[in-house]
């Protein structure tokens, strides 16, 4: 089957600062991939480029054969690092929004997950805690039948029990045609659900390997390897 995502020589500069520098990267289907790197390494820049929120300075991105645009947005489900829902909105408003925007949105799946996490569909976003807002947003994103899920720091703000539920959601939604790209600092928490990891540093891909390979070759966890590679 064709590659899900491929980028060649992908470079993004902000003024004099180079956020991504000639990145070549291929993502296969049916994988759960951790995008790991210290602060300011280019994780969010890469995810924003994949979602067409930034334009590359040079280089190309191809998702399912198309450059980022309306075609790719139909098949890429994106969880930004910050919430973009308005605080006057109720959860039902957001559900309607997603039904309108995305053909692949499964409202029943979303309602089911909201119920499981005890979130009232009539509650307004403005009256929710930061963690609950993040849960709502993640539920929306994971309730699409997308081919690529880009999750930028999905578990940072939620409590450990909700974190487990979110990881369960990622595991149970798994399908072999879709991949999930997760950027995070909380490596130890998600390590067991990852197939592959990408280490990114100063805009360069430092390592792209499977978790099993790392454990077999290094005899240590990805978390331990990360601490070693990026020691301050």
């Amino acid at each position: 089957m064709e590659q899900l995502m491929n980028c060649q020589g992908l470079t993004k500069r902000f003024g004099y600062k180079t956020a991504l520098d000639g990145v070549n990267l291929t993502l296969e289907r049916g994988r759960i991939i951790g995008l790991l790197g210290p602060n300011g390494s280019g994780k969010t820049t890469l995810i924003k480029l994949l979602n067409g929120l930034l334009a590359p300075t040079s280089g190309t991105i191809s998702i399912n054969g198309s450059a980022p645009g309306p075609e790719t947005k139909k098949i890429v489900s994106y969880l930004p690092e910050r919430t973009y829902f308005n605080s006057w909105m109720k959860v039902t408003d957001i559900l309607n929004f997603f039904c309108d925007f995305y053909e692949d949105f499964d409202r029943n799946r979303a309602s089911d997950m909201l119920r499981r996490l005890g979130i009232d569909e009539n509650e307004r976003l403005g009256s929710m805690s930061k963690g609950t807002k993040e849960k709502v947003q993640l539920i929306m994103v994971m309730s699409r039948d997308a081919q690529l899920y880009c999750l930028d720091e999905p578990i940072g703000g939620v409590d450990p029990a909700a974190r487990d539920y979110i990881l369960q959601t990622i595991i149970t939604n798994y399908n072999e045609n879709a991949s999930v790209l997760i950027s995070t600092h909380l490596i130890a928490d998600i390590e067991n659900v990852l197939d592959d990891v990408i280490f990114i540093e100063n805009g360069h891909i430092r390592l792209h390997a499977s978790v099993d390979e790392i454990r077999e070759q290094e005899g240590k966890s990805v978390d331990a390897l990360f601490r070693e590679v990026f020691r301050c």
């Binding site: 990881l167 595991i171 099993d212």
Partner: peptide
């Protein structure tokens, strides 16, 4: 595989392997 993966909290590909 999916249920076992969810129970163990590991990736389905890992469980498959």
């Amino acid at each position: 595989v999916r249920d076992l993966a969810a129970e163990a909290a590991v990736n389905p590909n890992t469980m498959q392997k």
